[in-house]
Design a protein around this nucleic acid. Structure first.
Lengths: 407, 407
DNA sequence: GCCAGTTTCTTAAGTGACTAAAGAAAGAGC
DNA sequence: GCTCTTTCTTTAGTCACTTAAGAAACTGGC
């Protein structure tokens, strides 16, 4: 099997930092990672020889001395397949180490069928054949709308797919002979965001998705938090209204049962705004228009924003994130959600100077699958090291002069 | 100054494991930490020479070969002072490396006074003098009811104490010449619980305190989670009732404004159950009694339990903890809270097989200060290493033979 | 009671990541 | 030109950790 680097921690730390922060000089890497310049010469030499990183022509301006030569990840040093399994389709992307997508496919698919997993295997097989013209395939990342015990074994429980204890990871791994990482789809999205999105410079943030369901990924200390059983992030089924509508999960008044796509359409239908078999897009289109009915449609979305904002207020009070990244199909009508979300966050959230920023990532068809591919690259780059700031280590308390590390 | 171990990670990993899991054999340590037996011989030899660990007389029964000789932490290899700063008093404990408390003091104190910090210095000074008869003082841990930017610099914001940006950590450190770690009081409690309490065998759990306020510490992946600004765990000010009573924080309907001590007494007073200047203890005493008024007092507590339980249901849905540890003064009447909490958790929380266990730690006067002391010992033992279960690491994607990283 | 098999611990020799120190290379400022 | 800075490299050495081999201590079978 292909591997990215040697056993040493520095290599992976360097790769992780380059993956997260983009091209840097050796000196900057050394400072950032708390290593000696000598080490960086060695490490970069080996990685250059392996073809994993490259020296860029672009140079940093001089800071009063010799100009720094930038090194950066070589995108085609490796690639990963990202698979998003939804109830009615499978999306697949082929992504390079630097996050560049080289191929995308979306295939209608009944994931609730009995033989769904073998079907997925056959669907993936053509993409896993060795290719001369492409970088080495490092592994397959799979995002599923459900909970996963551990990414490497990948046992899936997904009510939406009718899956109970399906050992997807080992089945795919055995059938395809590749490293397979399975993860909850929103958590996968969080990994992607951490590696290639807003999270490149953030250590503690939330990814919230709105759309058919309501999802959450918690990035804590630079890592996606999975909880004790891999079930962390079940935002959609947080109890909100004591006697609210019945949710697909069997409980009443879940957040998702109030502001998920189905709930919004139902609300609009009850209000006589849309017809019997309207879609979420119909509602969004209506809200974007003019007139009284558009106004009332916008009120529905604003109200949804307020409900979401109140829950986010509670969450930020407890988790203290630096930023909230909103994603998903529902962001198409984000501008109608936004006022409600912001108002609720301001009224019920943290005090101003600790209030998280809110950013919105535009929705693309492949973003879920990209997140899944990022799982593999994150594992390759991270190695469980990248997030630990070496300068933050405590070297034995109170050891004379400056032992309390210079964070 | 005293230091516990060398810079190498194995020593700290060994100490951390012994601190968490109790005495073990060298072979068990090697297995558990994924190191070679040879390394453990070396590491334990050095630690034995330093007097930090000792060989115990007690031996493990043979498993078909040579009997294992247990090594364990030497309790008197070090000690720490733990300080809990409350609005009206300061509590202090002197705790040994093994968690044994050798001295406790509680002093009435006005922490809201202008010269509070110098007063704390003078209060601590007698305890920091070198003592022949006691183990070396490793440092001072301080728990405060507020948010702290970073434990080492220790800049405190505490509305309850009227403190704004008070650099408590550096001030104490400079005045006393010792390592000082400052942390939110509930987070400190979480550290203590992780090291010496239920958390010894748990990696993901919540510590919830009930009493004057409502507090939360989140232990995620073996570490107390601090959030982006050190503000994680502000459970008391999660918004619950949109138009609820005014909270001390200026918002309406915070959890604390509904089920904190003051709120409960107020509710009981409004219901005519207790008199004008009743205390929380009066309410607890009443609930423990018999008759109609006792019945109604119990209803007040049960209702508080339900409110708490609903919020915990939301929290466990999102965080997926393995266990919830309830602590604090309020646990004196826990048996009247419990039915409400459990009912709400069952109705609104995770499905049965992922439902967190609930345990209650009996309240003691010094438990907050013990948590503060644990900060120091946790830092000494942890070193950012111990909490990572070496068996859970990803061994370099698909690279059969272990390329283990010594995180 | 002795030998085979097991488990625990130690010793010896070697690998490899990392470092400090010194210097070379390449620029800025005067 | 010169000095000062910053970046990168080379050299020689340190130290944690490992493998391999064996010693120590125990169980169980015969």
């Amino acid at each position: 099997m292909n591997r990215l680097a040697g056993d040493d921690l520095s290599s992976t730390a360097v790769l992780a930092l380059l993956g997260r922060a983009g091209p840097m000089s050796r000196a900057a890497l050394a400072r950032e990672l708390g290593m000696s310049p000598a080490t960086l010469t060695q490490v970069t030499r080996r990685l250059l020889a392996q073809g994993v990183i490259e020296e860029l022509d672009r140079q940093e301006p001089s800071r009063g001395g010799r100009r720094a030569r930038l090194v950066g990840l070589v995108g085609d040093a490796g690639r990963a397949l990202g698979v998003k399994v939804a109830a009615d389709h499978v999306a697949l992307v082929d992504m390079r180490l630097d996050g560049q997508v080289t191929d995308t496919v979306t295939i209608p698919f009944d994931a609730t069928a009995l033989e769904a997993v073998p079907a997925i295997v056959e669907l993936l097989r053509p993409f896993t054949n060795p290719r001369e013209d492409l970088p080495a395939l490092l592994g397959i990342g799979v995002g599923v709308p459900g909970s996963v015990d551990r990414p490497d074994s990948g046992v899936v429980d997904a009510a939406m797919l009718n899956w109970r204890h399906v050992p997807l990871g080992t089945m795919l791994g055995a059938a395809l002979g590749l490293a397979v990482l399975v993860e909850n789809d929103v958590n996968a999205l969080g990994s992607g965001e951490r590696l290639y999105g807003r999270g490149r410079t953030l250590n503690d943030f939330l990814v919230v998705t709105i759309g058919r369901g309501v999802g959450l990924a918690i990035v804590a200390g630079g890592h996606v938090y999975r909880g004790a059983h891999g079930g962390a992030g079940e935002f959609g089924h947080v109890p909100v209204a004591l006697d609210g509508p019945l949710c697909t999960c069997g409980k009443h008044g879940c957040l998702e049962a109030l502001i998920g796509d189905d709930a919004l359409v139902r609300t609009a239908r009850t209000a006589g705004l849309v017809g019997e078999d309207a879609t979420p897009d119909d509602l969004a289109g209506l809200a974007d228009g003019a007139g009284d009915r558009a106004e009332r449609a916008r009120a529905v979305l604003r109200e949804a924003g307020e409900i979401l904002g109140r829950q986010l207020a509670g969450l930020t009070t407890v988790l203290d994130p630096e930023e909230i990244v909103v994603m998903g199909e529902g962001t198409r009508s984000w501008r109608w959600w936004e006022p409600g979300v912001r108002a609720a966050l301001q009224r019920h959230g943290r005090r101003r100077d600790q209030e998280p920023a809110i950013t919105v990532e535009p929705y693309t068809d492949t973003i879920w699958a990209q997140g899944a591919a990022a799982l593999v690259l994150a594992a390759s780059l991270d190695g469980g090291v990248g997030s630990v700031d070496p300068r933050r280590r405590i070297h034995g308390l109170g050891d004379g002069a400056g032992s309390r590390s210079a964070t």
